[in-house]
Amino acid sequence: KNAAKIVNEALNQGITLFVSDNKLKYKTNRDSIPSELLEEWKQHKQELIDFLTQLES
């Protein structure tokens, strides 16, 4: 999976991924984040940080 797909899947579940101080963060109104999503974010962390940083610049 690529970073764009992961970010879109998160958005579809009401979760916004973003970068703050070079760290991957998220915002959501959900009570909890599915563990498989958290695991996927960890596996692709640097790719996600790079992707989101490019989007914001």
Rank of each mutant, 00 (worst) to 15 (best):
I15D: 01
G14V: 01
K5T: 15
T16M: 11
F18T: 06
L55P: 09
E56M: 13
K1F: 12
L24N: 00
L38A: 05
E40C: 15
L24S: 00
K42C: 15
S57M: 11
F18S: 06
T28I: 03
L24A: 00
L37K: 03
P34Y: 03
S35R: 11
S32C: 12
Q13D: 04
S35V: 14
N2C: 14
K42M: 15
S20K: 12
L11P: 00
N12Y: 09
E40S: 08
I33M: 04
T53I: 12
N2P: 13
Q54R: 14
E56V: 13
L17R: 01
Y26S: 03
Y26D: 01
Q54S: 14
T53Y: 06
S35A: 14
L11C: 12
N2H: 12
A3H: 02
K42F: 13
D21Y: 05
L17Q: 01
E9P: 00
A10K: 01
T28M: 04
I6H: 02
D50W: 11
Q13L: 15
Y26L: 04
L48T: 01
T53H: 07
D31V: 11
L55M: 14
K5M: 15
K5Y: 10
A4F: 10
K1A: 10
D21A: 06
K42L: 15
V19T: 05
H44A: 06
G14E: 04
W41F: 09
K45H: 14
P34S: 06
D50Y: 10
A10I: 01
Q46G: 06
N22G: 15
G14S: 04
V19A: 05
E47A: 12
E56D: 12
V7Y: 15
T28R: 02
L38P: 03
K25F: 15
I49E: 03
A3T: 06
K5I: 12
I49T: 03
L37R: 03
I15F: 08
K25A: 12
A3K: 01
K25D: 08
N2G: 11
K45F: 14
A4R: 09
E39Y: 07
S35H: 13
G14C: 07
N22K: 08
S35F: 12
A4P: 06
T53Q: 10
S57F: 06
L52Q: 00
L55C: 10
Q43I: 12
H44P: 00
L24Y: 01
I33H: 02
N22Y: 06
L55E: 10
S35W: 10
L24I: 07
R30E: 05
A3Y: 04
S32F: 11
I49Q: 03
K25C: 15
G14K: 04
K27M: 09
F18C: 09
K23W: 04
